[in-house]
Deep mutational scan, measured.
Amino acid sequence: YETDHQDYCEVCQQGGEIILCDTCPRAYHLVCLDPELEKAPEGKWSCPHCEKE
């Protein structure tokens, strides 16, 4: 399936195990989030940028 999400972390610009925001195209490593997450959230997730909106 096709997605318009970026394939690198918004914070460190590296690829790998990233989680995708359900609201925007941004993607993040769990450890690059502040506060960092230990595991990917279940269900819908909005990144810090979208949470501020």
Rank of each mutant, 00 (worst) to 15 (best):
Y1Q: 15
Y1F: 09
Y1S: 02
E2Q: 04
E2H: 11
T3G: 15
T3H: 03
T3E: 15
H5T: 13
H5D: 01
H5L: 15
Q6V: 06
Q6W: 03
D7P: 09
D7F: 01
Y8A: 13
Y8W: 07
Y8D: 06
C9Q: 00
E10C: 10
C12I: 00
C12K: 02
C12H: 02
Q13W: 08
Q13R: 13
Q14Y: 10
Q14R: 10
G15W: 07
G15E: 07
G16T: 15
G16D: 13
E17G: 09
E17P: 03
E17A: 07
E17K: 13
I18Q: 15
I18E: 03
I18R: 11
I18N: 11
I19R: 13
L20W: 03
L20T: 14
L20Q: 15
C21Y: 01
C21E: 00
C21R: 00
D22K: 06
T23H: 03
T23R: 07
C24G: 00
C24H: 03
P25S: 08
P25Y: 08
P25G: 10
P25F: 04
P25K: 13
P25A: 13
R26L: 13
R26T: 03
R26M: 13
A27K: 05
Y28V: 12
H29Q: 00
L30M: 12
L30F: 09
V31P: 13
V31R: 04
C32E: 02
L33F: 10
L33W: 11
L33T: 13
L33A: 08
L33D: 02
D34W: 02
D34C: 06
P35E: 10
P35A: 06
P35S: 09
E36D: 13
E36G: 10
L37S: 14
E38S: 05
K39W: 05
K39V: 06
A40N: 14
A40L: 09
A40H: 08
A40G: 06
P41D: 08
P41T: 06
P41L: 07
P41S: 13
E42K: 02
G43T: 14
G43N: 14
G43D: 11
K44I: 04
K44R: 13
K44H: 03
K44N: 05
K44V: 07
K44W: 05
K44C: 09
W45C: 13
S46F: 09
C47I: 00
C47N: 00
C47V: 01
P48M: 13
H49V: 03
H49N: 13
H49D: 15
C50G: 02
C50R: 01
C50Y: 02
E51R: 03
E51Y: 05
E51L: 07
E51S: 03
K52R: 07
E53N: 01
E53Q: 14
E53R: 03
E53D: 10
